[in-house]
């Protein structure tokens, strides 16, 4: 069974300046265990698509299923974890209480909450920072804590909306590497929105190239890179070939405009 299946998906926002076609005729299937990146310029609907999967926006056309359910049912079954652009940690809670937040809401028993906090903070290398408050941590650490929060409960699908967009290049490389390891260890399905071509190519098994006005998919690239990916794979000819294809796809989308 596919994790996400979209058919003829469209979403039109009615604004004061007339309708905005955020998504139009999107057909996409995401299989279990895939790492799918969505790349495209601002306004291409990549975040909107992620939000439709998460039932934070309702489509106006077509159908979409998440884990075989409607997005609403999938959300109510706590079928996915969502990582936002900013860490969004609650400043009045320590790091461990932030990670515990979804577990408290979902009614996990106390003992299990403690175990899961320890396990997920270990997974994102934040051991020893349990009692710190978010504002005592760097931006990269905050974002790792927010990933831990999304991993704390057992959702097989992880939706990530430009999670590293606000971080500097060095921290970003480091977190990309860690994210790949984490994906390898947990065997989750990851949907990852990004602006960055190298990030998309480095991380993904599948790259979805999108273009704006109306937001649509222009190319779907299956990556031929091996699962084991050291950072210097980014200089290999294979990597550069995929990156070139992504860039072509983006350019094709842009020529539509001007």
């Amino acid at each position: 069974m596919s994790v996400v299946q979209a058919q003829g998906l469209g979403l039109t926002f009615n604004t004061n300046d007339g309708p905005v076609h955020a998504l139009s005729n999107v057909n996409l299937t995401i299989e279990k265990g895939e790492f799918v990146s969505f790349i495209g310029p601002s306004g291409c609907g990549k975040t909107t698509f992620l939000r439709v999967i998460a039932d934070l926006e309702q489509p106006t056309d077509g159908t979409i299923t998440v884990n075989g359910l409607s997005p609403r049912e999938a959300r109510e079954a706590r079928g996915y974890g969502y990582v936002f652009q900013a860490a969004g940690l609650f400043p009045w809670r320590t790091i461990e209480r932030n990670v515990a937040l979804p577990l408290e809401i979902m009614g996990y028993p106390k003992v299990e909450i403690a175990q899961r906090i320890a396990r997920t903070l270990d997974l994102v290398n934040l051991k020893g920072f349990e009692k710190k408050f978010p504002w005592q941590l760097s931006g990269g650490m905050q974002q790792r804590a927010s990933i831990a929060r999304a991993l704390a409960f057992d959702a097989d699908l992880l939706l990530m909306d430009e999670p590293f967009g606000a971080l500097d290049e060095i921290v970003r490389d480091h977190l990309n590497e860690q994210l790949l390891q984490l994906w390898d260890r947990t065997n989750k399905t990851i949907c990852f929105v990004t602006h960055s071509i190298p990030e998309a190519v480095y991380l993904s098994t599948k790259i979805v190239v999108m273009s704006p006005r109306p937001g649509r998919v222009t190319d779907v690239i299956e990556s031929t890179l091996p699962k084991e990916r050291p950072l210097d794979i980014r200089e290999s000819p294979e990597f550069l070939a995929i990156a070139a294809r992504v860039r072509d796809g983006l350019r094709a989308g842009h020529s539509y405009d001007d």
């Binding site: 039932d55 934070l56 706590r78 996915y80 969502y82 937040l101 809401i105």
Partner: peptide
């Protein structure tokens, strides 16, 4: 913030849970 409220929504948090937490 909107993001924090969206976050609570992704957890399928109810009105009172979102209110108190």
């Amino acid at each position: 913030g909107h993001m924090e409220r969206d976050l609570m929504r992704t957890y399928a948090s109810g009105y009172w849970q979102t209110l108190f937490k």
